[in-house]
Structures are given as C-alpha cells and as structure tokens.
Amino acid sequence: MRRAYQWLFPHPLLTLLMAAVWILLQNEFSAGMAVFGLILGILIPRLTAQFWPDRPVQFHAGRMLSYMVVVIWDILVANVQVAWIVLTRPNSKLRPAWVVVPLDLRQPEAITILAGTITLTPGTVSADLSDEGHSLLVHALDAPDPDAVRDEIKHRYERRLKEIFA
C-alpha cells in the first residue's frame, strides 16, 4: 500500500500546493476547478518524479510551519530595522560585511531554503555557495559584528532546518 501511495503521490504537499495555486489562479472556486487542480497536482509531480531522485525521505511539516512563522516575523522586523537604518544613518556610518557561514546542512533542498530565507530577509543576501556546499557567502547591510550575524543564521535558521530535514 505504501508503494502505491508513493507512486500516486510522490510529493503529497506539492500536490496540495499545486491544487491550491491552480484554484487561486482561476480567481474563482468551483468543484470543477478543485477537481482539475487536484488532477494537475497529481499528474505534474508524478510525471516529474524521475527528476527528483534525492528528495528528502523525512520531512517534518509541523516544524516547517513553525519555521515559516519565524521567517515571516524576521522579515517584518528586518523591514523596520532596514527602514530605520536607511532613514537615520548616513552611508558613511553603515558597516556592511561579507560573512562566510559554514554549513552543517547537506540536503540541497535545505540549503536552498536557507539561502532563500537569508535573501528574503531585508538587510542580508546570500551571494554564493561553495563548490562543495559546505559554506554560504552572505552580504549583510549593517554588521558591526560579522560573527554575530553568522551565529544568528546558524542558530535561528540552520538549526531549525536540520530538524525539519532530519
């Protein structure tokens, strides 16, 4: 039964997400749109499953929801902080820095989520991933202590992603 379930739904969360996006794109909800969205949500992941050979085996969706809450909160706080910096400090008082963040993560999906999180948070941008995938280069708009930026990324985001993709 488990193999049949995995064959039909290789990415169950992606199936639901695609169905929801289809309904939102249609800008109206009807039973036909919901059924067609589910059909697309089943067929597209099934047809592309062969291109995802190393998908994560264990993924904790509940922890991912709490991670999303943390990220949204951090984005809101960082927006206010960056606005304050831009409005109150002259450019000469900014302390930009390049920060190398060593990674404990090894799954490409987790590293991608971490890099995206850093880039989505105002004031930081992930600029490069080392060839081996062992470190991430991050630019911070104002970082008087680059080590603190590195430690915050590792503690606030990477630690949680390691739990999600355990």
Rank of each mutant, 00 (worst) to 15 (best):
V71N: 00
S66W: 15
R63F: 06
R106H: 13
S30F: 01
T15N: 03
F59M: 08
R150G: 10
M18Q: 08
Y5W: 15
A140I: 04
P102F: 06
A115P: 02
L40H: 05
A166N: 07
A78L: 06
R55Y: 11
L136F: 07
F59A: 02
L24Y: 08
I118T: 01
F59I: 10
F9R: 07
H134I: 04
H155M: 13
I42K: 05
F36S: 11
V71A: 07
I153Y: 07
I164N: 00
A31Y: 12
R150W: 07
R106I: 05
R63Q: 12
I153P: 02
H139T: 07
D142Q: 09
D151K: 08
R159G: 02
P90N: 14
P45N: 08
V57G: 01
D131T: 12
L103R: 05
I118D: 06
A78K: 05
V35T: 13
I113D: 03
W73H: 14
Q6C: 03
F36E: 14
G123V: 01
D131C: 06
T88P: 04
A148S: 11
F29I: 15
V77S: 09
M18K: 09
N91C: 03
R46M: 13
V99Q: 01
I72K: 13
R46T: 12
M33G: 14
Q81T: 11
V100M: 14
P10H: 05
V57N: 05
W22L: 07
A19F: 06
I42P: 06
V70I: 15
H134C: 02
L141G: 05
A148E: 11
Q6K: 15
G62A: 11
L87Q: 11
G123P: 00
R55H: 10
P10L: 03
Q81C: 10
A110K: 00
H134V: 06
R89C: 04
S135Q: 14
P12T: 02
T48I: 10
D54R: 12
I85P: 01
I44W: 07
R150E: 07
I85S: 12
L136A: 03
A97P: 03
M33I: 15
I39H: 04
L47H: 00
L8K: 04
S130N: 08
R89Q: 15
P45M: 10
A143C: 10
V149C: 01
E158S: 09
A110R: 06
V99S: 08
T121W: 02
R150F: 09
L38G: 00
A34S: 02
P146H: 11
S130T: 13
T124L: 09
R160T: 11
L136I: 06
N27P: 04
R3A: 15
I39W: 04
Q81P: 00
V77E: 01
D54C: 09
P12L: 00
V21L: 15
L47M: 12
P56A: 14
H155S: 14
L141A: 03
S126V: 02
S135C: 05
L94D: 03
E109P: 05
T88Q: 04
W84G: 02
A166Q: 12
D145H: 11
L141D: 02
V101Q: 05
R89V: 03
W7S: 04
D128E: 13
V70A: 00
N91G: 14
T112S: 11
L17W: 15
V100E: 15
Y67I: 13
A143V: 08
R95M: 14
V71H: 09
W84M: 12
H155T: 15
H155W: 13
D151M: 11
R89H: 12
M64W: 10
